[in-house]
Write a protein that binds this DNA or RNA. Structure first.
Lengths: 348, 348
DNA sequence: TTGTACGCGTTATCAT
DNA sequence: ATGATAACGCGTACAA
């Protein structure tokens, strides 16, 4: 046995006094017509030497790997962290290894990562994409790479996708607001045109208000941004000015961060939740129980429960299906979401 | 150009009318004595065909890869998520690819992951280990695999490690409590014997109290567990019973989760923070600003700021150093931590 | 039941 | 300035 460098199949073969073919057969379980003696001998040598076949060489030979590329648009958000957990757990339990990369919301990075992941030999991709337009991704999908989209739509191609039923969640939420006597539901959101999640939530809000309240609330969508700390506060002032007499407003934040910022601004202004103003929004991340933000703050916030961990695991599961059966027609998995009613919208 | 299967260096060579050696030279930048014409031709073909050399084959040939194995003890904690972000960003910016695996606090899984990561050809390991004892890891380090420990010590081997100065943070915190007139600092912790972080924080607490208050608070360490929801509440009752007349207690949670649970129990009991009881603890994860738990809850909680993202990036940086210079003596990087004083311990 | 020989896609050595 | 050829470690058709 060599003392230097890594063990190879040759070393094992030599030590066992057989050819490397035989060792390879043993490793891959083709032992039907192998003598008991050689089997035992190989087994022992491998055990004693702690030999592990090189995945690199196997992958080269077999022309595939058990690695899955996962492209995350912004790894630093708690939503992404939860998605990663779901993907990781599901892939690992099925023998796959995820390769996570962070494209920081930059389309060029996303495109170059796609190429480098393919070069690494991944046998599929899970994409939480940056932009609704992505020709490079479409072209790699066309070449036969299995792709599943994670919570973001892409135009012009019939991708497999897993996402939550945001529109239905919005509907339930608006219905709840109406039942609590709020007369003026509004939405606070960052730029929504190129972000499919925000796009859908905004549209869901508008459609729900149309149906439930019977008017079109396009101008009740207040635009805020992440850079300017005062932005939310300013928009809230604008909302105050926009109110008609006797209006009881309820703010829906487009995501967790926005909702929290609105809460802070509300407290600064001294408004009373839930009586003078309601507050709610999607619950984009799910640390367990008492660590989760809707119940950490006071009052506890009514939310649409999204469950990103499940989105992640469903993505992984769908991709594995698709790898095993590449000709499967594209699936759209929509996870239902429940609303979780808490103090912040309970007037009655 | 073939229409089926992946492009290889042979296809490019053929299309360019040169040997694959020449193409390989071009790819690896050995172009000093290459004619301008061939260089241009190869360049164009590669560009047009969007060819990418196979990392698998290169790794096999070069006997190394740019992949780094990262073993996380419990990926579902926000602390781990933040560490992952730091590792990911730093490795990617240096051309390495992290392979994250989640050993769910199980030593066997950790050991088998070490083997399978090595089989995948990783050129180094970052370990946020499960247990302070790990012979398997020691033996792989002995065989020459570069290893950096992430925030957890391991007995009996001089590993490179990055961790925070928990003991110093505890000292500062206890000093602060004394200055605010608290007479009875206590700690709430889960089982600490096999978890090096908790172990160190508990020891830091004990040493600090000895020095600053002049007595030994071993029996003021209250043990709670994660399963039983009432556990924290019960221990808090016990603390109440243990108090001497005129004692003003201050609870230090061993980590974020424990601290929040103590806060919830305190509110249930109707005690007044900060006047009747103080509350503080390490801030194990760092979502930006208004999303972070110490300022979400009321009152805002005094913390030791840990900065897990920086722990992650420092780990990555140290490992890269070690890979480039394997004979470097083991480094212990201790990140200083500051305390962030907020309302929950401000009596004065 | 076991072994020989070749190829996976790349890079390195040695020629020319 | 370029090419032929041999490896890297493994799996497999084919031969024995």
């Amino acid at each position: 046995m060599k003392s230097t460098g890594k063990l190879t199949i040759n070393d094992i073969a030599e030590a066992a006094g057989v050819s490397k073919t035989t060792v390879s057969r043993y490793i891959n379980g083709h032992v039907e017509m192998m003598s008991e003696t050689t089997r035992e001998r190989i087994k022992n040598i491998i055990k004693m030497s702690n030999y592990q076949p090189s995945d690199i060489a196997r992958n080269l030979k077999r022309q595939n790997s058990n690695m899955i590329g996962v492209i995350i648009s912004d790894i630093s958000s708690p939503f992404s962290s939860a998605v990663i957990i779901g993907i990781s757990d599901c892939l690992e339990s099925h023998g796959y290894t995820p390769l996570f990369v962070n494209c920081e919301d930059k389309l060029e990075r996303e495109e170059s990562y796609i190429d480098s992941l393919i070069a690494k030999g991944v046998s599929g991709l899970i994409i939480n994409t940056t932009s609704s337009d992505n020709n490079h991704l479409i072209s790699t999908a066309c070449k036969g790479m299995p792709v599943v989209l994670c919570d973001r739509y892409i135009n012009n191609y019939n991708f497999d996708i897993v996402t939550s039923q945001d529109a239905q969640g919005m509907y339930d939420l608006v219905l709840h607001l109406k039942s609590q006597g709020y007369t003026r539901p509004v939405m606070f959101t960052q730029k929504w045109k190129k972000n499919s999640t925000r796009y859908i939530r905004r549209q869901g809000f508008i459609d729900a208000v149309k149906q439930i309240y019977g008017y079109s609330p396009e101008k009740d969508v207040y635009l805020v941004n992440n850079k300017d700390k005062c932005s939310v506060y300013d928009e809230l002032l604008k909302l105050q000015a926009d109110l008609k007499p006797n209006d009881i407003p309820a703010v829906i934040g487009v995501n967790s961060v926005t909702t929290i910022r609105v809460l802070i601004a509300i407290k600064k202004l001294g408004l009373l939740v839930p009586n003078n103003i309601g507050l709610c929004g999607p619950e984009d991340w799910d640390w367990e129980d008492e660590m989760n933000w809707p119940t950490l703050v006071s009052p506890h916030i009514t939310t649409i429960v999204i469950n990103p961990t499940e989105i992640g695991s469903k993505c992984a599961k769908l991709l594995i299906e698709k790898i095993k059966n590449p000709d499967m027609p594209a699936k759209k998995i929509l996870l239902p979401c429940k609303i979780s009613v808490r103090q912040s919208t309970l007037r009655i």
